[in-house]
Amino acid sequence: MIITITLAISFLVAVNFLLLIFSCNKATKKTTLKQQATIIKVVKPQTETKQLATRQLAPTGS
C-alpha cells in the first residue's frame, strides 16, 4: 500500500516536471530598434489627502 502511494506520487511529480519543462514559453530577447515598444507615461495630478478626525474612523476590533 505504501509502495503504491509512493509510486503514484512519484509519477505525478515526474509528469508535473515534464509539463513544466515543455510548457514554458521560449521568448527570445532579440529585438531591433523598430520592434521596441514606446512607453507612454501618463502624469496624474496629485490630490491632497485630508486627514480624518478621530470620531470618523471606524473601529478596528483590536
Rank of each mutant, 00 (worst) to 15 (best):
L19T: 01
L19K: 11
L19S: 04
L20S: 14
L20W: 12
I21F: 14
I21L: 14
I21H: 14
F22P: 01
F22N: 13
F22W: 09
S23K: 11
S23N: 12
S23Y: 05
S23Q: 07
C24A: 14
C24E: 14
C24G: 10
C24V: 09
N25Y: 13
N25Q: 15
N25K: 15
N25L: 14
N25R: 15
K26A: 08
A27L: 15
A27T: 05
A27I: 15
A27R: 14
T28M: 07
T28F: 14
T28W: 08
K29V: 04
K29H: 06
K29M: 07
K29I: 00
K30W: 08
K30C: 04
K30I: 01
T31H: 10
T31D: 13
T31N: 07
T31R: 12
T31P: 01
T32I: 02
T32E: 08
T32V: 02
T32C: 04
T32M: 03
L33T: 03
L33W: 04
L33A: 08
K34C: 01
K34A: 05
Q35C: 01
Q35W: 00
Q35L: 01
Q35P: 00
Q36P: 01
A37L: 04
A37E: 15
T38L: 13
T38Y: 05
T38H: 08
I39T: 07
I39Y: 09
I39V: 09
I40Q: 05
I40G: 00
K41N: 11
K41H: 10
K41P: 03
V42Y: 12
V42N: 10
V43Q: 09
V43N: 08
V43M: 05
K44T: 02
K44G: 02
P45G: 02
P45M: 03
P45A: 06
Q46V: 03
Q46G: 02
T47L: 06
T47G: 02
T47R: 07
E48H: 13
E48G: 04
E48P: 05
E48K: 15
T49A: 13
T49F: 11
K50P: 00
Q51A: 11
Q51E: 15
Q51Y: 08
L52N: 05
L52Q: 07
L52Y: 11
L52S: 09
A53M: 11
A53L: 15
